[in-house]
């Protein structure tokens, strides 16, 4: 990406794109697990977005488009480069069998209590225990993307997003309930 003359401001698309830097960086930080790689990933995302700006249709969803570029860049570049194809995660294993009714009720009560008391670091740790796709759907949901937009970002069907989100949330609940807080 070329620099611009001092005093010039980014155009309308640039201004809007830059407004999403925090959300993009947050997802990048949770995917790459460190600040330096997160900055590189976001920088690369904006470079690719600028180079492909002609392909973007004004009036459509710039936010979802940027998240898709970030996610594709991560999958095609960062994950491969680090030879770290993390595909497993708490959300990729089958949930444990339901407990008998009495034990189930007791466990539900404990789970509610622990969810209410879960500290920030516990929640972050639980999120980092998910697969990359699990983390991504949770964070995009928090970002307010609809399931349709998330499906565009991930390049999958809306139904797949629904099931990934459901599995990821179930895994988070299980992780938070299982930990002593």
């Amino acid at each position: 990406m070329q620099g611009r003359d001092e005093g010039e401001q980014p155009g309308a698309m640039g201004r809007e794109a830059l407004a999403y830097a925090d959300g993009l960086y947050n997802l990048a930080r949770y995917l790459t697990r460190n600040e330096s790689d997160a900055e590189d990933l976001v920088q690369e995302t904006y470079t690719r977005a600028f180079n492909a700006a002609a392909q973007f249709t004004p009036g459509t969803n710039l936010k979802a488009w940027l998240f898709r570029i970030l996610r594709n860049t991560f999958v095609s570049h960062y994950r491969r480069e680090r030879h770290n194809p993390v595909t497993g995660g708490l959300d990729t294993v089958s949930p444990s069998l339901p407990a008998p009714e009495d034990l189930g009720r007791q466990r539900d009560s404990i789970e509610l209590d622990r969810l209410r008391k879960a500290a920030a670091e516990d929640i972050e740790r639980a999120l980092m225990g998910l697969s990359e796709d699990g983390r991504t759907v949770i964070l995009l949901d928090l970002e307010g993307l609809t399931e349709t937009e998330t499906a565009q970002v991930l390049g999958c069907a809306v139904g797949t997003v629904k099931s990934r989100l459901s599995r990821a949330r179930a895994a988070l609940r299980q992780a938070l309930a299982d930990w002593e807080t």
Binding site: P10, G14, L18, A21, Q43, F50
Partner: peptide, 10 residues
């Protein structure tokens, strides 16, 4: 830095 690098026009 990001803001400075995004060109004013396409």
């Amino acid at each position: 830095r990001l803001g400075a690098q995004w060109p004013a026009e396409a």
